[in-house]
Simulated assay, not measured.
Amino acid sequence: MMDPRTEAGWKAAWRALGAAAPDGLHAQLLAAWSEPQRHYHTLQHLGECLTLAEELGDEMDHPSEVVLALWFHDAVYDVRAHDNEAQSAQWAERALREAGVAANARKRIMDLIMATCHGAADAPASQDSAILIDIDLAILGSSEPRFAEYETQVRAEYAWVPPEIFAVKRREVLRGFLSRERIYATGTMHTRYEAQARRNLSRAVGIA
């Protein structure tokens, strides 16, 4: 798993956009991803996403934009809020504008961040958004032990929700993914993760 604390990939993504990250931004993002209310949406998740992005770079139209979108996609994370993606996208927009990144690239990165809302099974708007969404959902197709860890981590983030309510709502979310014709839009990720994701989800909702 890639270590987000290593700056090489971070700096390379900015260079590919003809810019340099604003001073202190890398440290600010690391601090955000390390906030105490996080248990799943942590540097572990970010590192897993960045590792997959590196593996899938040849399939992307704008790899550096996908990488930066991943850095920002859960940069703002308040488990009780409903606008985390929008807040994260706005943070990205401010940073990218400050760095002098072109408007079209800024718009694509913001759209990628907003694509991680996962509120519907609509077709992704671009190849890069399809890859990024698949990367963000790769945890569903992870090994059985990692998926179990993920479920524990999510429960910890929602520790304030009564168990009986959490169980119902969580089952609804997981059944939503399971009901999709395809969980993963891209061929590579579908081949790699689809079958395992359906096994994990079926067990989690009690139909396996």
Rank of each mutant, 00 (worst) to 15 (best):
D3Y: 11
R5K: 14
R5S: 11
A8E: 15
A8C: 09
A8T: 15
G9T: 02
A13E: 02
L17W: 15
G18Q: 06
A19R: 08
P22C: 08
Q28M: 06
L29H: 04
A31D: 12
A32G: 00
S34C: 05
S34E: 09
R38L: 02
H39R: 13
Y40S: 00
Y40C: 01
H41I: 01
Q44E: 15
L46V: 08
L46A: 05
L46Q: 08
E48D: 14
E48Y: 04
C49L: 10
T51C: 13
T51R: 03
L52G: 00
L52N: 01
A53M: 07
A53E: 11
E55D: 14
E55Y: 11
E59A: 15
M60I: 03
D61A: 14
E65L: 13
L68M: 09
A69M: 05
L70R: 00
L70C: 02
F72N: 03
H73Q: 13
A75H: 03
A75L: 01
V76H: 09
V76K: 07
Y77T: 00
R80M: 08
H82T: 08
D83L: 06
D83G: 06
N84D: 07
Q87R: 15
A92P: 10
R94M: 08
L96P: 11
R97P: 00
G100F: 01
N104H: 02
A105M: 03
A105Q: 10
R106K: 02
K107C: 11
K107G: 05
I109M: 12
D111C: 04
D111V: 00
L112M: 14
A115F: 04
A115I: 04
C117W: 03
C117Y: 10
A120I: 00
A123D: 15
P124Q: 06
A125P: 01
Q127H: 03
D128Y: 10
A130V: 03
I131M: 12
I131K: 03
I131E: 00
L132R: 08
D136Y: 02
D136F: 03
L137A: 09
L137V: 10
I139K: 05
L140C: 12
S142Q: 09
E144M: 07
P145V: 05
F147L: 03
E149D: 15
Y150D: 10
Q153N: 07
Q153H: 12
Q153M: 10
V154N: 01
R155P: 00
A156R: 15
A156M: 10
A159E: 09
V161Q: 12
P162K: 00
P162E: 06
P163N: 10
F166V: 01
F166C: 01
A167Q: 14
V168E: 15
R170W: 10
R171F: 06
E172S: 11
E172T: 14
V173K: 03
L174R: 06
G176L: 05
F177G: 09
S179I: 01
E181L: 12
I183P: 10
Y184P: 05
T186Y: 11
G187H: 13
T188Q: 14
T188H: 13
M189D: 13
M189G: 05
H190M: 07
H190V: 01
T191P: 00
T191L: 03
R192M: 13
Y193S: 10
A195K: 11
Q196Y: 02
Q196M: 13
R198S: 04
R198V: 02
R199I: 12
N200C: 06
N200K: 10
N200E: 14
L201W: 05
L201S: 07
G206K: 12
A208C: 08
